[in-house]
Each structure stands twice: as structure tokens, then as C-alpha cells.
Design a protein around this nucleic acid. Structure first.
Lengths: 329, 329
DNA sequence: CTGAAAGCGCTTACAG
DNA sequence: CTGAAAGCGCTTACAG
């Protein structure tokens, strides 16, 4: 059996109350007693049971993180940052890969409630997850979920503008946008609106192709093929995800397009991973660290019952100028 | 206040015991009672507290996963698989990104113990993590930790052999190996041994360069530069990580080497992500799904106290033939 | 088929 | 400065 606080008490010759006090550094305890208790804990190799603590304190220091998948550069980087920041602040992360499936998300949500997590960070684009009565502190990244929930994101409209302008300035005449599933309320929709606005302002006609699932590249290749078939004269593409941009670039090259001479391409996300292995790809960089930091900090404030004025926080994005839009690196 | 089992009992007009029985589907209960209880649970929106349950049952269905970082294609893919498989089997994942720091790993290990996780899956290359007396079920991926701990990995020796032979068969004369930190006991060491054996068998002299940290590309560029400076006639490189391979390839190209004409390169890991955005890169594919599956299943067997004969499980790797070793795709 | 009681391991008023 | 008692929310023998 694992030793418990009673065992420590017995060995140290004090009461469980005292051991608990030493453990929590609470109230006045003579230094001799403290030493005795510490010695006893060491002797029998005592490890506190956080389950019992949490049950009493109604506080688990557990944060649920729901993301589509860690196996994607953007979410991988985001989760990495979230976990690191949580850990620094004494919180633990319960990881939930929802695969973008609404049903799975609901199951995870229930599970997190049963496990008494202190709060949840959600990165998902399905509707109707958080409309339940029984609620707890939650923060959402990149997506408006419900009135009472703080949402943090980077400036997707600004990103869409930047990307489109970058292509225009690079001299592109026929700029096409590739976006994800139009039915999901992803932040990429904002990027599309920005693209359309910039195009209109420049007196051009916007054209967007939608791929079924940004994350699963294989299912997208058909749309990419269709795009080139229907628009052989395309000379600028703004893809709302770096992986999609890379896939498009490769297909274009296989058709004989020279990048950036015949066709310029810009992606989105600009994770450290992609920038380091694909430095040539122009892209819009999302500040994942800042997003993660704000999400965690706001959530903790909410957990602590501290008021945080902001219901929404948006961070600026930045442009990574690569060869694929004609820059020399 | 959140409703508890007592509240349900009151509303349903039964005892807490009965509610608990209904909840756990245990013992005989009349169907009318069941219905009353379910109705009451729904009415007051009851959600069971798994903390209390776990405290009593001494079983949390929580699995700790310690990895260097989710922000790396190989670990990202691995964690993704582990989480998915755990979830399918009713387990939850407590994520720990250790950043390869021994001290952080120890802290995480303690935290996991305090949180009463049922078991741990460790992917780390530091020594001396699990020598503590107070132990619980654990499985290690890719690294021998201690006598009693099951280790699952893919065949790193086979991978090293395959990679080296691939370069030899492609006609390379001067084959150099790039590996990670020689002080960490990573599985990559096996790959190096295999490389050395194949080289010796072919009557050649092996030469290995070590980069400080495979995961952080920036810190590696100096070593790569040195390699090319000291061996301008290199015509084959086996890098023990795809990111490293890609970085090396890019640097070589910047020096004017044509790939694969002047220089052939093969990487390692072969994650779905890298294969889809860098299909040209020859690499050794590790079966991350199988590794994850075996790790989770073995761990659960251990948790359940079922005997599992194997102390070690090794899965075969496979070769991805890309343009960087001269294949036409 | 159902309930009262004790206990999982910890903590915190309340006394002293 | 220290201890006995009650309670966090649940479950399981033990009776009936």
C-alpha cells in the first residue's frame, strides 16, 4: 500500500492534522515538528495524493485542451506552447484530440467535466459545443463559441489582407484563394473576407476554392487539380494553410509552372517548423506563443474569479517574405 | 453548487446507494427505480465526480505521457496516435513536454505520481528517471530505461542498415552520417552502429557528425557547415532525422550541390507530415501507429495486472524512396 | 431489490 | 503550537 498521511503521522509521532499543515505550510508549527514530519515523509517515501486534495479543495489544477489534432504544425506548436505555459503556472494539461468531429468533442467535454478540470481551452470549429447549462471556465482560440466565452486569436482579417496585397504587389493578375471547409466557422473565413475585400478594392474578381479538410492533404488534391484545370492562367494563389500551400506548389510544379516566375504562392500559419524546413514559402505568421499565453492567462484569471475586462483579444500577424512571392532570400 | 449523488437521491426518493448502483449498473435494481433515478439525474443535470470515484476505486484511467515536445513531426504524430488509442480504450492523457530536460522530467514524474495516474508512457532519452522505489506501471518508447520496464520501438538497427545501403546502392562513394547528441542514449545510436557496420562491411570508413539537438535546427547549422567544409567531396548523407536531412539538403543546395546528382540524402522518421510536404526526401519510415498501439496496450495490460510476456517489442521500418537518393517519382 | 454505515486520503474550522 | 472531528463526493460490503 502507498503510504498515506496517517502513516507519516504515526512515524513522526504527530497527528494527521499536523502533517497536513506541514505539507501545506499552513499555520504555526514548531521547526522541530516540521523536521520530524519531513524526516518521516522521506523515511516511508510519502507522496501526497492530489486526488484527495482536489476532492476537498474543489480545485484540480487541471486544464482540458481540445484541439483537432496535435499532428499538424499549427496545432502542434500551439499545444506545445499551451502546455509549457500551463506547466510554468502549475497547471496540468489533459489533452483531447477531437479530429474535428462534433460528437467526439461533446464526449471530451463531458469527460472533462466529470474529471473536474478547472477550465478548458478549446480550439475547434464546430458549433454548439458549449451551450450546456452546467458550465465552467473556458477560453476559445480562433473561434466565437458563445457570448460568455473569451476568444483569443490573431488578426485573421489583417492576415488575409496582407497575403492578398503581397500577391498584388508582386504583380499577380489572376489571384485565387484556397480555403477550408466553408461550413465550419473557422477563422479562415475572415481571411477569405479580407481577400475578397482587397480584390474588390483593386477592381478584381475574387475566386475561392474550398477543400474539404485542410488537415488531410490527400482529400484536397482533387480540388487543387480542378483549380488548375479551370484556371490555367492563374498566377497568384493564397492558401489559408501552409500545408495546403506546399501541396499546391508541388502540384503546380508538376504541371510545369515555374515558381515564382509563372505563379506566386503564399500560405498561412508560418509555424517555426514550416519556416525552418520551407523557408522559401511566403506565409502569414500567427503568433502562437502570444495566443497560447493569453488563452492560459485569461483562463486562469477566470478560474481564480478575477475579472478580466476583455471578452476578446486579437494579436497582429506578420508577413514572412519568401521566394514563392518573388523575394530573394 | 454542483449537484451530487445525494441530491439525485433526494429528487428520486431513493438512497445514495441506489443512485450509485444505477450509475454503475451494479446489482439488481427494479426498472422503475432506474427510471426514476435517470429522470432525477437529468432533471438536476447531474454529472458524476470522477475524482471521488477514483479516490475510492484507486483507479483514475489517467495515463501520463512524457515526450520532449509535441512540436516535432515524429513526437507530434506519436502523441496523436497515443491519445487517440487511449481515448478509444477509455483512458485520458496527461501531457508532459519535457523539452529533453532531465530536471523537468523528474518534476513531471512526481506530478504524475501525485495525480495517481494509472501508468506512464515515456519517450525520453535521459538516464535515471525511473530508479525510484515508489513505482507504477510504465512503458518506454525507443529507449531502455530499467530492467522492469517494457520498451517498444521500431528496428533502429535495420533502419540504419537500410539507409546506408540505399546510399551505397545509389552509387555514393563518400557517405557521411549526421546524428544527434552522442551523450543521450537515443535510439539513433543504434542507427549509427548499423551505419558503421554496413560501411565496414563494404570496406569503407564511417564518419559521423553529431549535432547538439536534433529538434532545434538553428543550433545545428554550424555542424552542417563544418561537415561540408571538411568534406567537400561528400556525395551521400544519412541524417538521423528528417528535419536535419532537409536542413542539410537546403544548405548543400545553397553551396551549389545538385541533389541527387552531386549529393544524395536520406533522412529518418518518415512521418506522414514530412512525406506529404517533402515527398522527394528519401527516408526511413517508423511505424508510429504500431508503436503507439503496442505501448498503450502493453501499459493497460500491466495496469490490469495481466501478464504480458514481452519485455521488448520491435517493429520493422520501411524505406521511402524519393528523388533525393535518385529515384524517379 | 434497497438502505445505513464506513471508508477512499486529504483539509479545515473549532477547541485547547 | 497541536489534535479530534467532520466533510469533500463517491462506493461497497453488510444487513434486511
Amino acid at each position: 500500500m502507498k503510504p498515506k498521511i496517517q502513516d507519516v503521522a504515526k512515524v513522526a509521532g504527530v497527528s494527521p492534522t499536523t502533517v497536513s499543515r506541514v505539507l501545506n505550510d499552513r499555520g504555526y508549527i514548531s521547526s522541530k515538528t516540521k523536521e520530524k514530519v519531513f524526516a518521516a515523509m522521506k523515511e516511508i517515501n510519502y507522496i501526497p495524493n492530489d486526488l484527495a486534495r482536489s476532492l476537498y479543495n474543489k480545485r484540480t489544477y487541471l486544464i482540458g485542451v481540445i484541439v483537432p489534432s496535435t499532428n499538424h504544425p499549427f496545432f502542434g506548436e500551439l499545444v506545445d506552447n499551451i502546455e509549457r505555459i500551463c506547466n510554468d503556472k502549475g497547471y496540468k494539461v489533459l489533452l483531447c484530440n477531437s479530429l474535428q468531429e462534433a460528437e467526439k468533442e461533446k464526449k471530451y467535454w463531458d469527460m472533462l467535466q466529470r474529471n473536474q478540470v478547472d477550465g478548458v481551452i478549446v480550439v475547434t470549429y464546430n458549433r454548439g459545443l458549449v451551450d450546456k447549462e452546467q458550465q465552467f471556465p473556458a477560453v476559445v482560440i480562433d473561434h466565437y463559441l458563445s457570448e460568455n466565452i473569451h476568444v483569443v486569436s490573431s488578426d485573421n482579417f489583417q492576415g488575409g489582407e496582407m497575403a492578398t496585397k503581397e500577391l498584388i504587389e508582386a504583380g499577380c493578375e489572376n489571384i485565387i484563394h484556397i480555403n477550408g471547409d466553408v461550413n465550419l466557422e473557422t477563422p479562415a473565413n475572415e481571411r477569405q473576407y479580407a481577400y475578397e475585400k482587397v480584390m474588390h478594392d483593386a477592381g478584381r474578381i475574387p475566386l475561392t476554392y474550398h477543400v474539404p479538410n485542410v488537415a488531410y492533404l490527400e482529400s484536397n488534391i482533387d480540388i487543387i487539380k480542378q483549380l488548375f484545370k479551370e484556371n490555367p492562367d492563374v498566377d497568384g494563389i493564397f492558401a489559408s494553410d501552409d500545408l495546403l500551400a506546399i501541396r499546391t506548389l508541388q502540384y503546380a510544379e508538376s504541371l510545369g509552372y515555374k515558381i515564382p516566375e509563372d505563379l506566386k504562392i503564399i500560405g498561412y500559419d508560418g509555424t517555426g517548423l514550416i519556416r525552418s524546413i520551407y523557408p522559401d514559402l511566403s506565409t502569414i505568421i500567427q503568433p502562437t506563443y502570444q495566443i497560447a499565453e493569453n488563452a492560459v492567462e485569461t483562463l486562469i484569471q477566470e478560474i481564480d474569479g478575477k475579472p478580466h475586462d476583455l471578452k476578446e483579444k486579437t494579436f497582429p500577424v506578420s508577413l514572412w517574405k519568401g521566394k514563392t512571392t518573388g523575394h530573394v532570400t
